[in-house]
């Protein structure tokens, strides 16, 4: 299972929160229906885009669910805006990239041809729905985002400034966000719960939507009412 990254991949769990919350979703730059633009991408840029959108919508306080890249941006937002973020839930989201992290080799090796051969339908969907599709450029650009170890990338120790109730989730068989790294993250956030989702790998919300959706809704209900 894989996705090119767009708000549509959240459709599996949106129904579990739609009756209680007003759900705001966005396609990151270059993803889904959003344009890529000419600027280089980074998790910091994604964060700024989200802040601009929330200000545009006149949103005050809010909660966040973020999946992998979305979770990394969510950590950044919660650390940056502790008075604005009520509650944080992430899934499969790394908080740092250590020099020996096994995901570096995997992410570096990711190339367009491999992707096209295995996920032609997803690429076709992207090219059909994006106003200015350029998958080759998108893949090249997001690789720089994933491998960015500067301050514009992963939050790293800034996660220690997260104050809101936080739930970190990962698939039990996730090969990118390890159990050790999840536990290390839990020790750095003062009010952090942890859920290891059984029988799933990297996309637990798609592999086990009922379990993840109900955990998400239950956690949000506890801390936002």
């Amino acid at each position: 299972m894989a996705g090119l990254g767009s708000m549509d991949e959240l459709n599996s769990i949106s129904p579990y929160v739609a009756s209680n919350y007003q759900v705001i979703r966005v396609d990151f730059r270059g993803h889904g229906k959003s344009l890529l633009g000419e600027q280089s991408l980074s998790y910091l840029q994604y964060q700024k885009d989200i802040q601009a959108l929330l200000n545009h919508l006149d949103v005050g306080q809010y909660s966040i669910f973020g999946f992998i890249d979305g979770g990394i941006v969510a950590y950044r937002l919660a650390a940056r805006e502790p008075d604005r973020v009520n509650c944080l839930v992430t899934l499969g989201a790394q908080w740092r990239l250590k020099p020996n992290d096994p995901s570096i080799e995997l992410l570096s090796a990711l190339n367009k041809d491999d992707w096209l051969s295995q996920f032609a339908n997803e690429v076709a969907y992207y090219e059909e729905n994006n106003p200015e599709p350029n998958f080759s450029k998108l893949l090249h650009t997001v690789k720089d985002v994933w491998l960015d170890t500067t301050a514009s990338g992963y939050p790293d120790i800034a996660v220690e400034t997260i104050k809101c109730p936080t739930l970190v989730m990962r698939g039990d068989n996730d090969f990118l966000f390890s159990l050790d790294e999840a536990v290390a993250l839990k020790t750095r956030i003062s009010n952090c719960s942890f859920a290891n989702i059984p029988l799933t790998a990297h996309s637990s919300h798609q592999e086990s939507p009922k379990l993840v959706g109900e955990i998400l809704n239950q956690f949000l209900q506890k801390y936002t009412n």
């Binding site: 990254g5 979703r25 396609d27 993803h31 809010y62 966040i64 979305g70 009520n86 998108l138 893949l139």
Partner: peptide, 24 residues
């Protein structure tokens, strides 16, 4: 640069931002 968004769910509910992943 144009960013696509949607707002759905319960208009009376508290805001919940849902952020997707990347191509992996």
């Amino acid at each position: 640069m144009s960013l696509y968004f949607d707002v759905s769910g319960n208009p009376k509910g508290k805001p919940l931002l849902m952020l997707h992943g990347g191509p992996r």
